[in-house]
Design a protein around this nucleic acid. Structure first.
Lengths: 336, 336
DNA sequence: GTGAAAGCGCTAACAT
DNA sequence: ATGTTAGCGCTTTCAC
């Protein structure tokens, strides 16, 4: 009956009809079928957020922000995981054409032409929370990694640390490349040369530990007092060429992994080595000592991405926008 | 054209037809509409996992496990957040009748009659990853909290600690009540009385810190050497009635929050106070010192819940099953 | 303001 | 083996 639909959707109806419908709905426990509805009206009132790894706390921050904006606008948010491979990201974007949702916010770890093509051709609006070339012509909200790196390096410099190592994630990822370049530029701008650079296999805690092993054994400073102490120096990170003051990690999970390897070698953070993470996720606050971290604005990126998506859904003719969110530094005990 | 449908679904067709369809699909970039399909076949091939808080790492473990089982069975998994309120859980379960997915795994924080009713009456199969009364007559996979508490208490006892405090989450939650009872029983079984008990406002890190403040100021041992040291005792946690040896927290987030408050009072874990968490989440491994934690089998619970859901979808006439997963203890540096 | 009827895109049953 | 048709449950004309 069409009147049921009208009443349920708040269209004009007589008082009596409203009551009649409400009673019937109550009695039968009737709930309209969302699939049939969306088939007819062409909208699902669902939005999808796709992230690479639910275990990465940066996505928690982002999810919360997206959820807030999206639910305020009357949409349901569902989250899916893509994993680290670009083919799975592409499959997800292609799959959106099946009509699962009215829009997609995707934070891709790896980007290739296929992915960009799939986004451009996608039947539903897609906003990328991350960095894709301007030529791609898609809505994006990205962080300013280089600026963030500069904040990190200059903070270390300001607190008297010059011998800096960098632990990056895989450079074949979008954040990996951005941070590699950002780090190199930031160091150069300050007349510094890195003590060491290590590339972790991915952006996880376990990879951070492995990278820590590589970093610290590579520098031959694994055991406190192995050299510096004997020569009367402060026990700690002594490289062939000099001390290791500080480590910058490409995200918080890597930073925490490294901190564990430092501890395993009895190196104290921040006394022996300072550590800076990136993302300023909940983990930075939770870890011990609390981790100084570059806030790349994941909450704001989530919010802006969600807003962009809603705007795009509203009007598909707008020119693609590219929003950049500026970083700040959250200084904590790991770099006093 | 029905033949297209047949080819795409792998039903018998002539070679030529298959090719003809494939070419057309390729050219047009045709993707079948999942809404229309599910409207017709009555299945979405999507499953939903609902959790209270994406920021709680225990759910990360569970999500991974559920995802694995579910995707192996050819389903898409989507994750939604309910928040801590039972009314939102109820709304979510009720909403499932709209046909968003073929089944639901829900890990409810709070359970009331309304929720149980909504689950029983739900048009799609629901499996509860958590504890609901047997009388509810729903499929459940739950942890054995009491047994887990016993492992924790007996481990502390075996490592020479008797003066144990307990920080629980809200007792009006399912895990909160289970752990309160489990702790009380485990202590009694070992002839112990708790030094202190604190109820955090929820199962988060921030609540853990607040609970830590309450615990440590309540015991008047906030500052190292405030009493014990003066009397020649080991500096550390001195209660009115005696020392505080150890803290058991109802989950890892609370445990980590407490560890921060201990550190703020210059109490060293484990030397001054041992700490045990529950859930054995990734955070237990990541935190420092690494946290001894009761593994309540969240991965296995996720796996079993997913399997139960798939079985239930297959056959809706089976009697409800109630699976209990047994805990183990992951001993780490926080309780050597 | 309400009922009747068409149709969203797909698949399953039927007819060829 | 393929084309035709009905219908999944809803919303939205279109008459009245």
């Amino acid at each position: 009956m069409a009147s049921v639909s009208r009443v349920l959707n708040g269209l004009p109806a007589t008082e009596e009809m409203v009551e009649r419908v409400q009673r019937a709905v109550e009695e039968l426990g009737y709930v309209p079928d969302a699939r049939a509805r969306s088939l007819k009206v062409g909208r699902t009132f669902q939005l999808t957020l796709a992230v690479a790894d639910v275990g990465n706390p940066v996505y928690v921050t982002m999810m919360r922000a997206v959820e807030e904006v999206v639910s305020a606008a009357g949409y349901r948010l569902v989250v899916t995981t893509t994993g680290p491979d670009v083919v799975d990201e592409v499959a997800l974007v292609r799959g959106m054409a099946r009509g699962y949702a009215d829009g997609l916010v995707i934070s891709p770890l790896r980007v290739d032409d296929d992915l960009i093509k799939s986004i451009r051709e996608c039947d539903v609006p897609v906003v990328v929370a991350g960095n894709v070339p301007a030529s791609a012509g898609v809505d994006t909200v990205r962080a300013n990694s280089p600026k963030g790196m500069l904040l990190a390096v200059e903070h270390l410099l300001a607190t008297g640390r010059k011998r800096i190592a960098f632990v990056n994630g895989p450079v074949d990822t979008v954040p990996g490349t951005a941070r590699a370049k950002g780090f190199a530029d930031a160091m150069k701008a300050n007349g510094l040369r890195p003590v060491a650079e290590v590339e972790a296999v991915d952006f996880t805690f376990a990879a951070g530990r492995d990278a820590g092993v590589e970093l610290l054994s590579g520098l031959d400073i694994g055991v406190r007092g192995s050299g510096a102490e004997a020569r009367g120096g402060r026990p700690g990170a002594e490289a062939r060429g000099g001390r290791l003051d500080a480590v910058i990690a490409a995200n918080d999970l890597l930073a925490v992994g490294i901190m564990h390897e430092l501890a395993a070698r009895e190196l104290v953070v921040p006394d022996d080595v300072a550590v800076i993470g990136m993302d300023d996720s909940e983990l930075a606050e939770q870890c011990f000592p609390p981790l100084t971290s570059v806030n790349l604005g994941s909450a704001e990126r989530g919010r802006r991405a969600a807003e962009l998506l809603l705007a795009r859904i509203d009007d598909d003719t707008r020119a693609p926008r590219r929003i950049v969110v500026q970083p700040t530094l959250s200084v904590r005990k790991s770099t006093p």
